[in-house]
Amino acid sequence: MKIAVCIKQVPDTAEVRINRETGTLIREGVPSIINPYDTHAIEAALSIREMLGGTVCAVTMGPPQAEASLREAISLGVDEAFLVTGREFAGADTLATACALSGVIKKIGADLIICGKQAIDGDTAQVGPEVAEFLDIPHVSYVKKIIEVNAESIKVERMMDDGSDIVEAGLPALITVVRELNTPRLPSLKGKMNAKKAEIKKMGAAELGLPPEVVGFNGSPTQVKKIFTPGPRGGRKQLEGPLEEQIDALINELLEKKCL
């Protein structure tokens, strides 16, 4: 079984603050981490390898610094790592990102592709399904449980808004995973040693056979027109007085606002 995991290096958005004067993100001192959902994707791939044998490779697209996230993936037990990088990929939206990632997956080949549900900086959840479409393979989103996997097919439980579905798909296929799936392992000492000396294979658009108009900014139909900070919520009311009075006041307010 050959498994590819798509990961993304993201700023820890919990640490991101806003400069209220300029409306820009303050990223100084914000640590870069592997997108939390992707750590569950890595864990899923490693445990399938432990069951069925095979190899796990991690794939990312990003600036040269993203190499750090691939080394971290290797420290967890990933066998091989590929970094899609180059100026031509800058300014990519989800479509151009999926195009680049599917390019490298086509090159290395995979029976199963695992992605985190979404990245915590963009929160789109679109790259996984788009990669599946580019590769012309089926996909299942929001996988919370892998029930069965063998050389031909995979059976999973997928989260839906009102419950869940048990879904079966033939391989090759792509799944995107949620946090409930597993608990990611910590790197081992041996893993950390491997990570230091491992070779990270770097690829540009030319090596992937992708023309410049399909990647990066040029291959991105969506463009950010404006970025602004959400206005603060107004109208906060701190209720006061004895508890009974506070609760009476709350119920009256909620009735007035037609919330009850």
């Binding site: 929160d123 463009q223 959400p230």
Partner: peptide
Amino acid sequence: RPAYGGNIMASILSPRT
């Protein structure tokens, strides 16, 4: 739409397609 964990809002266009 919100991005960066709701820290910012982004207005997005698809002007060419």
